[in-house]
Design a binder for these strands. Sequence first.
DNA 1: ATATTATATAAGTTTATGGTTATATAATTA
DNA 2: TAATTATATAACCATAAACTTATATAATAT
Lengths: 86, 86
Amino acid sequence: MEREKQAQIFKALAHPTRLIIVEKLLEGERCVNDIKDLFDASQPNISQHLNILKYSGIVDFRKKGNLRCYFLKDSKKLEKIIQAIK
Amino acid sequence: MEREKQAQIFKALAHPTRLIIVEKLLEGERCVNDIKDLFDASQPNISQHLNILKYSGIVDFRKKGNLRCYFLKDSKKLEKIIQAIK
DNA sequence: ATATTATATAAGTTTATGGTTATATAATTA
DNA sequence: TAATTATATAACCATAAACTTATATAATAT
């Protein structure tokens, strides 16, 4: 079970778009709009990537008016992982 | 390109079987036979997982008679990644 | 040379991913 | 309340991943 969970985190990180999102969130929370502007991908596509990160437990969000601001649930851990892969 | 490469490493690690293989190889090189015995998966299945790790640049092998001994190409890096995910 | 052991490769099937376009929902503004 | 903005969800399609079984190859032993 432990390995499945770890594998799932790796799977969530196994996409350039999601890696870039996570790196952005290492700087602090960001609303979807800001995240979307990092890419020229479609809005639903970004939303789906965010959902994958959410589902895997890497990010969560809070509402701020009609915005959704995503943040890393454990930025220390992510920091380490991102650092280690370089 | 850098992100694609990192994503590919994550993808290679995004499977319980391959995670276990990598953790085993952290102890030192191992022949396919020994690796196979860690699982009750089929021989071709293990071979395919090893190939994925090879293709992604995580492992390499050397021949020793009719055995193939796999080893981590950068065990320090893998050590860090595996540590960070825990 | 033949058989055996260790391992890889191929072909086929099933399920999962990653993207698109269209549509829904929720909050804000007019 | 109607329109707008921000975002998610659904339906769909194409490609890739993960297995299985069958077969090939390479080294060793007989």
